[in-house]
């Protein structure tokens, strides 16, 4: 009996520690630290993230290996898209509020390269409406180690010195394109907390 209780306790403890997916229902919903809101038309799953920073969120429909939509709700000047140890050899470029479009694009690219991606190509960079003003939209492709190519779209804008970013990435065959209309809708629906 004692052993059974211990196993039950261990199981409960383990379950409590394991992050789980949460359902995101259609309708206005805050993301990241709550300063950014979007309005999904369909249900999504919020991906659990142990090391995620406070302004980050990530959603998926078919699993993160196939497609994700990522949010950054106001990265402050001096912070990085990925949390690093100070002594890591390779680090994502730190965000600065006065970054040029060229700086922003290479900062996003470096987030992939630092994670080990070597084959990364930017297909296009163009101005795009985002959060009531003109932001920047970049389309890109990259190759993970398994050879299954992925495509991505990131929309970025610096507002009051903070970086707001929404990003779709998915397997090139089917998943990226299938999620594109909903992603475009989410970008168009995005608003900042007043």
């Amino acid at each position: 009996m004692k052993n059974t209780l211990m196993v039950a306790f261990a199981t409960l403890t383990l379950c409590a520690c394991v992050p789980t997916y949460k359902l995101v229902k259609p309708g206005a919903v805050p993301v990241g630290d709550g300063s950014l809101s979007v309005t999904p038309r369909i249900e999504w799953n919020e991906v659990p993230g142990i090391q995620r920073q406070v302004w980050e969120d990530e959603w998926t429909q078919n699993g993160p290996l196939l497609e994700t939509i990522g949010f950054v709700s106001g990265l402050p000047d001096g912070k990085s898209l990925i949390k690093h140890r100070k002594k890591d050899d390779a680090q994502v470029a730190v965000f600065r509020a006065d970054m040029t479009p060229n700086d922003l694009v290479s900062m996003v690219e470096s987030a992939y390269r630092v994670a080990g991606v070597t084959v990364f190509a930017v297909d296009s960079v163009s101005p795009a409406p985002f959060l009531g003003g003109t932001g920047l939209k970049m389309n890109y492709r990259y190759s993970p180690g398994d050879g299954i190519g992925k495509r991505g779209t990131a929309v970025l804008r610096v507002v009051n010195g903070r970086l707001y970013l929404m990003k779709l990435e998915g397997v090139s065959s089917h998943y990226y394109e299938a999620s594109q209309p909903e992603f475009e809708h989410l970008v168009a629906s995005a608003t900042l907390k007043k």
Partner: peptide
């Protein structure tokens, strides 16, 4: 493998070595 945040490369095996 490496798990990057929303601003990074998402969930994937970055290198052929991971695979």
């Amino acid at each position: 493998g490496i798990a990057a945040g929303a601003g990074g490369g998402g969930t994937y095996d970055a290198s052929w070595i991971d695979v």
